[in-house]
Lab assay of single mutants.
Amino acid sequence: LVRYRTISKIPQITLNFVDLKGDPFLASPTSDREIIAPKIKERTHNVTEKVTQVLSLGADVLPEYKLQAPRIHRWTILHYSPFKAVWDWLILLLVIYTAVFTPYSAAFLLKETEEGPPATECGYACQPLAVVDLIVDIMFIVDILINFRTTYVNANEEVVSHPGRIAVHYFKGWFLIDMVAAIPFDLLIFGSGSEELIGLLKTARLLRLVRVARKLDRYSEYGAAVLFLLMCTFALIAHWLACIWYAIGNMEQPHMDSRIGWLHNLGDQIGKPYNSSGLGGPSIKDKYVTALYFTFSSLTSVGFGNVSPNTNSEKIFSICVMLIGSLMYASIFGNVSAIIQRLYSGTARYHTQMLRVREFIRFHQIPNPLRQRLEEYFQHAWSYTNGIDMNAVLKGFPECLQADICLHLNRSLLQHCKPFRGATKGCLRALAMKFKTTHAPPGDTLVHAGDLLTALYFISRGSIEILRGDVVVAILGKNDIFGEPLNLYARPGKSNGDVRALTYCDLHKIHR
């Protein structure tokens, strides 16, 4: 019993810090008490220290592992850092350059016999395009090294910054494609005289377009951006097909006994025919423009016929181009109408809503002055909100995010209106959640004399007048207030005048 009563005193000691020596009952000389009392004092002292730490809000209350900052290894790049964003855009520009100039170089340097010394005699450094290609190869190699040090988000939505895990993730992902696209074939085969082989191998750079397509997928929600990307894709495919079309004609031209190829026909049409040795002929500019003209006309199913396939190889390629053109029509131009419709969806919704308003007016036989006010209010409210119901949009977000959005939407009023000066951010967040926005066209009466005042109004834009009878008592403008002081009276009061809008007004109100 003594032991039980001794232990039962522990909660009292913990909360009230009572010393055991003052209790005459606990001072009985028993061996059990002498053993338990020192333990009680020690526990009391420890609990006292913990309570003191909690009340003082000291940093040592938290466990040590929670006080440590997340460790980022040296030379690790955050995937959302500004440097990584700028670097990704730079790589994107280099990939676009590669997609345009690599097929052009591979096709127009394929057994090209233009006048001038061969590239091997001039030297590697004197070729501007080769120098640019070398810079692109170096940048792609540097990009691989950067990807080995860039964080990523795993399946659990955690940012991984450990170098080993980053390397394994990159090896399992895009490393092989990036490595093949970054191989400097110019340096590996330079001086061997195989410019045709170098041009063909350099087309491996186009593998990076797969990554670019995935990154550009984030802009699919913007109709104008999608339309622009589709047109660029169409032009890029036409450019690639033009390079292939020229390569076919250029390879067949020296081996044909009869002059029936499209390059021969082009030379005869523009007065620059090929001679018996295969030299001469149109310039590279004429060849490229004509090839691009043929691919565009074939892809769009126009086909004027002034550039036509004559050999079997050219006919087979033309059939493939027609098939590609039909697929592009289905996948690209078939979506253009939907994209344009999405661009004008706001206008369509406006006309639909206006039609419903006019049908309501016609069905209920609203008189002319009231009908005009109804239409003007709808037009003004639509121009202010673009038909978007803010309350319906915010309803799907958590309250903390709703408060931040409301604070942002009402920031101008909260910053410049005098009653809100000096208020804490928590108070402003709470008030912003209570605001209701209303609009009024010129001549609209917001409050009639004798109406119950259940709200306090803040003028965000425009001006109003307060009338008693036919006498203008006051004219209020931006950041002015009218209405009933909230919670100042037990019952809502009545208006002693009319409140009429002089201009288009936007008002925020808080109800009782």
Rank of each mutant, 00 (worst) to 15 (best):
L299E: 01
L93A: 11
F360I: 02
I324S: 03
A225M: 04
G325Y: 01
Y344I: 01
L292A: 01
L129R: 05
A381E: 10
E252P: 01
V212Q: 01
N312M: 01
P273V: 01
A432K: 01
Q269P: 01
F397L: 08
I183G: 05
G193Q: 13
L323W: 11
S298P: 01
A155R: 13
G280M: 01
R208L: 04
Y65M: 13
L409F: 04
L229V: 05
L206R: 01
P442G: 03
A440T: 09
W262K: 03
A449L: 07
L110W: 15
F378P: 06
L209S: 13
A125M: 12
A181R: 01
E359H: 04
D143N: 03
A167S: 04
F435G: 02
L209P: 03
P82D: 02
M433H: 03
I135L: 07
P398A: 01
F360P: 02
A403H: 03
T290Q: 01
A291S: 04
T233W: 09
S161Y: 13
S297W: 01
S105H: 15
S383Q: 10
N265A: 14
L394W: 02
F175P: 01
L78E: 09
S345C: 03
E158M: 09
H380Q: 05
T424F: 02
N250C: 14
L92T: 01
F333M: 05
L409D: 02
A69D: 14
R349A: 14
R371F: 01
V136Y: 02
S313L: 13
D257A: 11
I339W: 04
T290C: 01
G267L: 03
A432S: 08
G325H: 01
L207T: 13
Y288A: 01
M179H: 03
Y124R: 03
N312G: 01
I248Q: 01
R208W: 01
F175K: 01
S105N: 15
A69G: 11
Q253N: 14
F171E: 01
I237M: 13
D404S: 03
L227V: 11
Y219C: 13
A224V: 14
T295P: 01
F228R: 01
Y246P: 01
M139G: 04
A449N: 08
E121S: 14
T385E: 12
A99C: 01
L201F: 07
V210W: 15
G173T: 13
N250T: 11
T438L: 11
L145D: 01
A235S: 14
M328S: 04
D143E: 01
A213L: 04
F108P: 01
S297H: 01
A348K: 08
F397P: 01
G281N: 01
N386C: 10
C243G: 01
Y124Q: 03
I138C: 03
I96G: 04
L129C: 04
A107M: 03
L263M: 01
L446R: 03
F333A: 03
